[in-house]
C-alpha cells in the first residue's frame, strides 16, 4: 500500500511538473519600437519564393510588409517568382516575372519544390538543409540573425541615364571583422508597385486583377552566383570597390526600382551582408 502511495505521489508530481501552461490573456501583439539603423549596421536578406498563381503567397507578402514596418532598412527583400505557380497561365495570368537567375536559385535551393510560399533568410541553414523557411518562420530568423554584429558593410552608388536606360552601380565593401572565406558580391535589380493579376485564396473572387507586386527580381548584374572578390581571407578594415553596368528594359519603371547588393560566402552561399538602394535617388 505504501508503495502504491509513493507511486501515486510520483505520478501526481510528474503531472504537475509539466502541466504549467502559459495562458496569454492579452494583449497578444508586442509593441515594437523600430530603432534607426546606423550606417554600418547588419542588414538581412529575405528571399521570398512566390508566384502569381500561388493563392497563399499574398500571406507571405503581408508578412513582408509587417516585417518591413518593424525592421525598416535592416531588412532587404527580393521576391523571386519561380516554379509552377510563376508560369504564365490562361487568359489572366499572362505576366512572366521569372528570371534566369531566379529559376537557377529555385532549382538549386529547392524552394518551389517544397511548396510556395516559402523563403530563405540570409540562406541560413543551407548546409544543413534547413534553409527553406515558411513565411511564419521568417520573423524569428530575422530576429535571431540581427543579434550578431555585421562582418561587412556595403555602400552603393547608382548613376542612371534616363536617355539610354544605362545604370552604373558602384559598390564599396568595408570588411568589419576578418573573414576567412572566399566572398562574392551579388547585385540584382528589383521593381515594386507592378500591377498585375495575383491569385489569393482568401479573396473573393480569388483572381485579383490589380494586385501590387513588390520587390520583383528583374535581373541579376552578377549572374546567379555572384562575382568572386578574389581572396581566401579578408582582413578587418579592408576595402573592395567594384563597378557594374546594366541597361534597363524599357518596360521597367526606374523610379520603382532598387538595386539590391549582397555578399555571400562563395562556397556555402550564406549571405554575410545586404544593402539596398533606389535606382533613382
Amino acid at each position: 500500500m505504501r508503495t502504491l502511495k509513493h507511486q501515486v505521489t510520483l505520478v501526481s508530481a510528474f503531472c504537475i511538473a509539466f502541466s504549467s501552461c502559459d495562458v496569454i490573456e492579452g494583449p497578444f501583439i508586442e509593441e515594437r519600437v523600430v530603432s534607426e539603423c546606423s550606417n554600418k549596421c547588419r542588414k538581412i536578406l529575405l528571399e521570398d519564393y512566390t508566384g502569381h498563381m500561388c493563392g497563399n503567397c499574398p500571406r507571405a507578402a503581408e508578412k513582408i510588409t509587417e516585417l518591413k514596418n518593424i525592421y525598416g532598412d535592416q531588412l532587404v527583400v527580393i521576391a523571386v517568382h519561380s516554379g509552377f505557380f510563376a508560369e504564365p497561365s490562361g487568359t489572366y495570368f499572362t505576366n512572366d516575372f521569372r528570371t534566369k537567375t531566379g529559376n537557377e536559385w529555385d532549382e538549386h535551393f529547392g524552394n518551389s519544390a517544397a511548396g510556395n510560399p516559402n523563403g530563405m533568410v540570409n540562406r541560413a541553414g543551407y548546409s544543413e538543409s534547413s534553409h527553406i523557411l515558411q513565411y511564419t518562420q521568417w520573423a524569428q530568423k530575422v530576429e535571431e540573425l540581427l543579434e550578431s554584429e555585421p562582418k561587412a558593410a556595403i555602400e552603393l552608388e547608382t548613376n542612371y541615364n534616363a536617355n539610354t536606360y544605362d545604370l552604373t552601380v558602384t559598390t564599396e565593401i568595408e570588411i568589419l571583422q576578418t573573414i576567412s572565406n572566399p566572398l562574392s558580391i551579388n547585385l540584382v535589380l528589383t521593381e515594386s508597385n507592378v500591377v498585375g493579376y495575383q491569385k489569393d485564396y482568401d479573396a473573393n473572387p480569388e483572381k485579383i486583377p490589380n494586385y501590387q507586386h513588390s520587390h520583383i527580381m528583374r535581373k541579376s548584374l552578377t549572374g546567379s552566383w555572384g562575382k568572386d572578390l578574389g581572396k581566401e581571407t579578408y582582413q578587418n578594415r579592408s576595402l573592395i570597390s567594384n563597378t557594374f553596368h546594366i541597361t534597363l528594359d524599357e518596360k521597367w519603371l526606374p523610379e520603382n526600382m532598387s538595386i539590391v547588393a549582397f555578399i555571400t560566402k562563395t562556397n556555402t552561399l550564406e549571405v554575410v551582408q545586404a544593402q539596398e538602394s533606389p535606382v533613382i535617388k
Binding site: S20, V23, E30
Partner: peptide
C-alpha cells in the same frame, strides 16, 4: 492524457505562450 510542449518565444510580433498544455 496530459501533453505539454515548450518552445521559446522569439517572435518579434506576437506575445506567444512558451508552454502549451
Amino acid at each position: 492524457s496530459l501533453v505539454s510542449k515548450f518552445q521559446q518565444d522569439l517572435d518579434p510580433i506576437y506575445i506567444l505562450p512558451k508552454n502549451v498544455v
